[in-house]
């Protein structure tokens, strides 16, 4: 039996297929594009080509496009899926999970492997992947390049928490001839500040914090977060699949 987890986020769609022994048989990522329905179709064809049949397996869809997967047996929210994915990835039962996604940021507190509490950012894209993307665009950079550049910067601060105002701040910094790396530094620190302030509202009693979601590959962001939270922030390359892994695990309970 194939256990298929599909995580359709606002920017990327992730697929993970697990076998009976919870081993990952397949994982892949692709841009979500304009329509989640089309994306779900493309995923289905791709799986069929690999000899994996969604019809014969169990499928759980998660993420913001979870309702657009007609062949899913069940939908489960990102909160539960990221939580289960993180428990599987880190083999820990007590931890805080921070998922910085394309559209929203989630903080999940796990106790004994169960979600004890969670928070999602409101209506606003500050502190999310979208924020990074917009700023990178303004600076004519790729998001990962911005992250790497940020490491070399210093001193500059963006004070506005609102994406629209922050963008004009970035534009005026560019206008003033501020060094690119310093602006990049300000952008990444602004994301970390916003995330840390959300964390401060939660009871993070656990020692470790795990980073999942699209931005976990930005190593500088991880370091800054570590500093601001005063706790080790761990991540793994597979972390961007945490939601899909969790979904695949959830499909075992159907």
């Amino acid at each position: 039996m194939d256990y298929i987890g599909i995580d359709i986020g606002s920017t990327c769609a992730k697929v993970v297929v697990m076998d009976e022994d919870e081993k990952i048989r397949h994982q892949s990522v692709q841009p979500t594009g304009w329509s989640s329905v089309d994306t779900a179709d493309i995923i289905k064809n791709m799986l069929l080509e690999k000899g994996i049949s969604p019809e014969n397996g169990k499928v759980v869809a998660t993420g913001y496009g979870r309702v657009s997967v007609p062949y899913a047996d069940k939908t489960v929210t990102e909160i539960t899926c990221h939580a289960r994915g993180a428990v599987w990835l880190y083999e820990k039962k007590n931890m805080a999970v921070i998922d910085i996604g394309g559209q929203d940021t989630k903080i999940i507190i796990l106790e004994n492997g169960m979600v004890r509490d969670f928070a999602m950012n409101d209506k606003c894209s500050a502190g999310t992947g979208r924020f990074l993307e917009i700023m990178a665009n303004t600076m004519a950079l790729k998001p990962d390049a911005l992250c790497e550049l940020a490491r070399k910067g210093k001193d500059v601060k963006i004070s506005s928490m609102c994406t629209v105002f922050a963008e004009s701040e970035v534009i005026s910094l560019i206008g003033q001839g501020e060094k690119k790396e310093n602006i990049a530094f300000a952008v990444v620190n602004s994301i970390a500040d916003k995330v840390a302030s959300q964390c401060s509202k939660m009871n993070m009693s656990s020692e470790e914090v795990f980073l999942t979601g699209g931005l976990c590959e930005c190593s500088y962001l991880r370091e800054v977060l570590e500093e601001k939270l005063g706790k080790p922030v761990l991540t793994k390359p597979e972390c961007r699949y945490a939601g899909a892994i969790g979904a695949a695990l959830c499909s075992r309970n159907i």
């Binding site: 913001y64 489960v76 929210t77 990102e78 909160i79 539960t80 169960m114 979600v115 969670f118 999602m120």
Partner: peptide, 9 residues
């Protein structure tokens, strides 16, 4: 999404 996640919790 929040309400759904809450019920799952």
């Amino acid at each position: 999404t929040r309400l759904e996640a809450f019920l799952e919790t």
